[in-house]
Structures are given as structure tokens and as C-alpha cells.
Simulated scan of single mutants.
Amino acid sequence: MPAVDQQCRSSSSGGIDSGIDSDERSSFEDERRRRLAQLAPGLAHEICTPMQYIGDNARFLAEAAGDLRGILSWYQACLRVLAGKRHPELLEEIAAMERKVDLEHLLAEIPIAIAQSLDGIGRVDALARAFKDFCEAGSEPMAVDVERALSIALAVTQNEWKSRGEFTLEVAEAARIHGPPRDLALGLVEVVLAAAAHCGPPGAAIAVRGTRQGDRIELVFSAANSASSPQGSRSDPCDLAPARRLLASFAASLEARTDGDGWTFHLALPLNGQAGPAAAPARSPGARR
């Protein structure tokens, strides 16, 4: 039986880490735990906020349903009495009952409450799925969808950038790159957090624009209303070493540029996977007020 290379060891998820020694693997896991510890309180807040209005709306619906059942039962009784007769006093009682339960308000608000509840459930589901994918990203190299990886990074960092209003994602082509999903997930989180802190003036919305440049896809993180890419200083506004280290397995390049009026971050990833047809732009959920 051929000898097994000593550098190939089983990973904690049951896969194989090729060419990564135990110290480096431990460093990756420490980085993941550090970032998860930082993000967990914000994620908990993002989950609790929609759950709160889901609960409020559910209680409203329960009370409203009771009122509706009462008035509908009243209508049925009245209709039996009114059948073939004229009873003005009974008709006035019906009108008074409608005013008492504010029937017009109930009929207007119940659909809104249901829609908000469904929206809240959708937000919680999307956050939970993104957080699960982020936590379970493995170290075994494989084809990774860039837009999906960006969407996950935006979801798990939402509490860090939501004061910006929104973080818009526009990727012109459905691109796939090859490498460890874990490294890409953590690296993109670092870049998103840097962009949230340094792109444009405080409070400005941020956009990520992805375009294919030959055999690579270039992602530009900038203020949403920025019409051009700064060509001035390229000194980093923050520590980008962790992001560069995490993205090194993809042979990625990461630059920060500024002309004195906010920063843009340029991330180039070689397309050693396959690029697909154009995908519709995706928009991240805006911050709730």
C-alpha cells in the first residue's frame, strides 16, 4: 500500500487538510472562534429583533381572531332573525357591534401583521442558514460560488454594518473559484467589516460590485454612490493582514485605495472554477428602524 503523505491529516470535520501543518490549522480554528465570538452577540440581536415583532403580531392576530369570531357569530344570529323581516333596531345593533370591535381596523391591519410575521420568519431563516453555512464551511478545497459566499458574509456581519442602511451586492457573472470554503468565508468577513468601517462617510450605503476581468473576478467594495475608483494612496486604513492570509489559498490580491474621500477595497480572485451566465443582482436586507 502506498505511503500516506505525512502532511495529509484528517481535519476536525472529517476531511483532509493537504499541506497544512497542525500549527497553521490551529491558527485557522482560533481565527474562526475569535470571529464567531465577536459576531455572536450581533447575530443574537438580529434574530431576537424580528422574533419580537413576530410575537407581538401573533398576539395581535390571536386577539383579532377572537373578535372576528364573535362578530361573525353575531352576524349569523342576526341574519336568522332578519330573514324576511325588517328590524331597524337590530341593524343598528349590528353597526354598533362593528364599531365596538373596530371591524374596519381589523380588516386593514390583519394582512399587514401577517405579512410582517412572514417577513420576520424569512429573516430569521436566512440568518440561521447563513450562520450554519458559515460555521460549517470546511477546509477541503472545492468549487465555491463567490456570490453565495458574499451573501453569507453579509448576513453574518449584518449587525456590524446595518447602520449604513444596506449593503448592496451586484455580481455580473455567477463565478466559481476553487479553494477551502472556510478560508473564503473568514476572509470575506474581514473584508466586509473593513468596508463597513472605512467606505465613504459614516452612514453611507455600501455596494459590492463584481465584474469578470479576464481569468479573474474583481470585487470592489465602495460607497454605493461612488462613481469612480480612487487611484490615490494605497496604504491600508486598517489591518488587512488576516484577510490576506486567509485568502492566500485562493491566490487572491487585496488592495485598499483612497483619494482622501473614503476608501475602496479591491479583491481579485482567480477564476480557476467555472463562470456561469449572468445572474440577477441581489440586494441584502436593509437595516430595520
Rank of each mutant, 00 (worst) to 15 (best):
A287H: 14
M97F: 10
A282Y: 04
A256L: 04
A227E: 14
R148P: 04
D125T: 11
F167K: 00
D239T: 03
L118N: 15
A227Q: 11
C48D: 13
G286K: 06
A172M: 08
H105T: 11
Y75S: 08
P41D: 05
K162G: 01
E218Y: 01
G179F: 05
F265H: 03
L219F: 03
P111Y: 07
L154G: 01
R25F: 02
T49V: 13
A197P: 05
C135S: 15
R123W: 01
Q231E: 08
E92A: 09
L271R: 09
A185V: 06
F60M: 06
I217N: 02
R129I: 05
I112F: 10
H45N: 06
R80P: 09
D261M: 08
S222V: 05
S12Y: 11
Q6L: 12
A172S: 12
L103F: 07
T168S: 09
P230W: 10
R33F: 12
D5S: 15
E160D: 06
P180S: 05
A287C: 14
S117W: 09
L103P: 01
R123I: 01
D239P: 03
T211D: 13
V124L: 03
Q116S: 11
T49G: 13
C8D: 14
E89M: 02
D261I: 06
P230M: 12
A172E: 10
D125V: 06
N57S: 06
G165A: 08
A287R: 15
L154N: 00
A149L: 05
I16D: 00
F250L: 14
A143M: 06
D133E: 15
D21S: 04
I16P: 00
Q116E: 10
Q213D: 13
D145G: 14
Q6E: 15
V220F: 02
S163W: 07
A248V: 02
A149Q: 05
A130P: 00
L39W: 02
L193K: 09
V144F: 05
I71T: 02
Q213K: 13
L150A: 03
A205Q: 13
G84Y: 07
S253Y: 01
H105M: 11
K162Y: 11
A37V: 12
D236Y: 15
L127P: 01
I152C: 03
Q158H: 09
P141R: 01
K100G: 13
